[in-house]
Write a protein that binds this DNA or RNA. Structure first.
Lengths: 131, 131
DNA sequence: ACCGGACATCGACACCTGTCAATATCGACA
DNA sequence: TGTCGATATTGACAGGTGTCGATGTCCGGT
């Protein structure tokens, strides 16, 4: 539906195709549809608990973590953590793999990089050191 | 208050210091304070109208635009556009300069790059082409 | 087959947010 | 000084969102 060309992410899962590839918003004005799509992904990132979840999962041993690993460091109830994880999975920023009784979540690095690529200025011109 | 080290952005304006510099969230778990700060910036980006405003301003002639340039292409009322612009300015993503009767908004490229830097993975490991 | 534990879903609640019409503010110009 | 026009602010409303307790689901072990 959206005219965006997705990355090589598997967009078989509904809610995937988080952002456009190679279309930094500083280049040309976003269409209403593109803006809505991007905003959907940004909304998933616009919450302290979810940002911490992403970093907790990424920094966890093996790059994956189950709900029980995340509930305590966040200080939130288990249903709330499950809710946030579902939002992140629906946004294509995490993947969920059920092994036995546990559900292991992994960061989708390409999705994070794709979001970053849309926000960043295409070439140099950073004036301040972007590190 | 926050332990984040800001970029060379002018953080004299309240609401500046949008994100940490050189602290990608995939490295180490975010503290609650850092996550709250980052989320505040992400919330400003998590709206279709505001994303379009950023791209409209960036793509506009001279890299700046006044409210009257933005109201019509967005299809929103003037107060609503002013509201969104204020949110973006408070987040440090736009700057406002009043010249005569008009208010000109400009994109803060460093802030956008800083946000992108926090989200992106530090080194390679993109697997998919991030362009 | 039963039980226990890990996780997801549901229902409800308070709070936040995007939008607009109406109004206020403020600078330019006659 | 008074008017006009560009922008900001206010007030109000509908809809969305984060949170939790309670409950459901499903797997592994006894």
């Amino acid at each position: 539906m959206v005219t965006l060309t997705s990355t090589t992410l598997d967009d078989t899962r509904p809610g995937a195709d988080p952002v456009a590839c190679c279309a930094p918003l500083v280049r040309a004005p976003l269409t209403a549809e593109a803006a809505t799509t991007l905003a959907r992904t940004m909304k998933a990132l616009a919450d302290p608990a979810r940002l911490r979840l992403l970093s907790l999962v990424a920094a966890h041993e093996g790059g994956e973590a189950c709900v029980c690993d995340l509930t305590e460091p966040l200080g939130l109830s288990q249903p709330t953590v499950s809710h946030h994880l579902k939002v992140l999975v629906d946004a294509g920023l995490l993947t969920r793999e059920k092994r036995g009784v546990w559900a292991y979540y992994t960061l989708v690095t390409e999705a994070m990089n794709a979001v970053a690529a849309v926000l960043a200025a295409p070439s140099g011109r950073t004036s301040a050191s972007t590190c």
